[in-house]
């Protein structure tokens, strides 16, 4: 399937940018591991919990945090890299479940989805008033 000539060192000459996607995957893995658990705790449990006055204070703190530019830029980096981490892993999981022959085709929905979501993140963060 990879057009090998069957002998020696020249047989595995296909390079299709896996190094690039792996680098994004790896950096995104670090970002996701460092940040995503805390994000889940904040947006999944701390924001919705508590009585209305507590919720209002937390909502304000959250809005304040994501409204300042250094946080916006950092958030965009964390979100985009985490998305590409997930996209790469999802692609390889699908390959391991039998879609190996479509490894090239799978790049479109996986990395394309991550790119689209990253652009959406940039647009959303841009639109948050400080």
């Amino acid at each position: 399937m990879s057009g090998s000539d069957g002998r020696g060192g020249g047989r595995r000459a296909r390079h299709s940018g896996e190094a690039f996607w792996w680098a994004l995957f790896s950096a995104g893995g670090v970002m996701a591991a460092l940040f995503v658990p805390a994000f889940v705790v904040v947006t999944g449990f701390l924001l919705p919990a508590g009585d209305p006055s507590v919720a209002a204070a937390r909502a304000e703190a959250f809005g304040q945090a994501v409204g300042c530019w250094p946080v916006k830029i950092a958030l965009l980096g964390v979100i985009a890299l985490s998305l590409f981490h997930c996209a790469h892993r999802i692609r390889h999981t699908l390959m391991d479940f039998g879609l190996r022959r479509y490894s090239g085709l799978l790049k479109v929905p996986c990395y394309g989805g991550a790119l689209a979501a990253s652009l959406w993140a940039a647009w959303v963060l841009w639109g948050i008033a400080p």
Partner: peptide, 13 residues
Amino acid sequence: DVMLSDEAMWGCT
């Protein structure tokens, strides 16, 4: 040159 190709180390999950 060999190890960077798709079915060298990038095949490893």
